[in-house]
Design a protein around this nucleic acid. Structure first.
Lengths: 173, 173
DNA sequence: AATACTATATATAAATA
DNA sequence: TTATTTATATATAGTAT
């Protein structure tokens, strides 16, 4: 889908690989959102870059879909029917509230993308003016957690799998 | 991307919505796989149809990516660094083995897609001849679990969220 | 790095089998 | 229904910013 037909194989050039990762990740999110809108589906996309940074998109929210997935698949095999039903009912109770979470994630996702690049705005420069009260509360909680983690010098997870170390040290949230 | 430009809004016609869901879900999987291959990324896609059936794709495997996601995000906020590191190390130990799981999921995914349609082959007619010993072992475990769930008359999770009941009663695995 | 531009490769909506 | 076909809308590779 471009000027040249490219084989589907690993891109060895670091810069091109990074550019392609950004573009295609955005494309994947867009496709996922369209699927959700057009078909009334719930969708989550999770991606780890080659350097180990994490990115995610979800409708209505990543965690909503993941929790529901755990419920539907039995959480790995050990869950009883009762446990799954409990999870499922909790999921139903909270769907409405989670719309706020989705909006926060969208904005955090943009900040994470900036971090992946390295030249972007810091996470705390996020456009908070667009958020409502509930959303600000969620954002505050997220940032407090992040602050705790940074204080504990806990930036090692993303780097653990990196093969090139060219990404930021701080994992995307 | 078709004969007519369609707005990105919910498709009300049930048949068209179903067709679109199948096509776009497949497209999403393909894009996700290409992102993984070209950029050395790990990717998971989870989708619930409007009727409540679950579908997933992952490279190297859905569960691999989900576990890593939980590790990277702290499993919802409460995990200590030590817990996350433990999860992360377990993840590393098992990456190689999970290639087998990925192949099983591909084949199960095809069966699930057939189920979503309703006219497809039953799950047990899957092309098992393509699997190796480890893979067969995984498939056996999956099917035993399914048998247990069916025996307990436990097909209700998928139906719980359905708005139309036009899907199969048996959730995709 | 992210984004805008533009030429080309792909995805997909409708129609058909 | 699930393929195939085909016409058209989109995604994206290369490029420069």
């Amino acid at each position: 889908m471009g000027r040249t037909k490219l084989e589907i194989k690993k891109i060895e050039d670091k810069a091109r690989r990074q550019t392609t990762f950004t573009k295609r990740r955005q494309g994947l999110y867009k496709k996922a959102g369209e699927l959700a809108t057009k078909c009334g589906a719930q969708v989550a996309v999770i991606a780890f870059s080659n350097a180990g940074n994490v990115f995610a998109y979800g409708h209505p929210a990543v965690n909503t879909v993941l929790r529901r997935y755990e419920a539907a698949t039995g959480g790995g095999g050990g869950g009883s029917r009762a446990v799954r039903e409990e999870i499922e009912s909790k999921y139903r109770e909270s769907v409405a509230k989670l719309e706020a979470e989705r909006r926060v994630e969208e904005i955090l996702g943009r900040a994470a993308a900036a971090a992946e690049g390295g030249g972007g705005r810091p996470l705390w420069s996020v456009e908070v003016e667009k958020l409502g009260v509930d959303e600000l509360e969620k954002l505050r909680a997220t940032m407090e957690d992040m602050k705790r983690r940074l204080a504990a010098h806990d930036g090692g997870i993303a780097a653990a799998e990196a093969d090139s170390g060219d990404d930021r040290d701080i994992p995307a949230v």
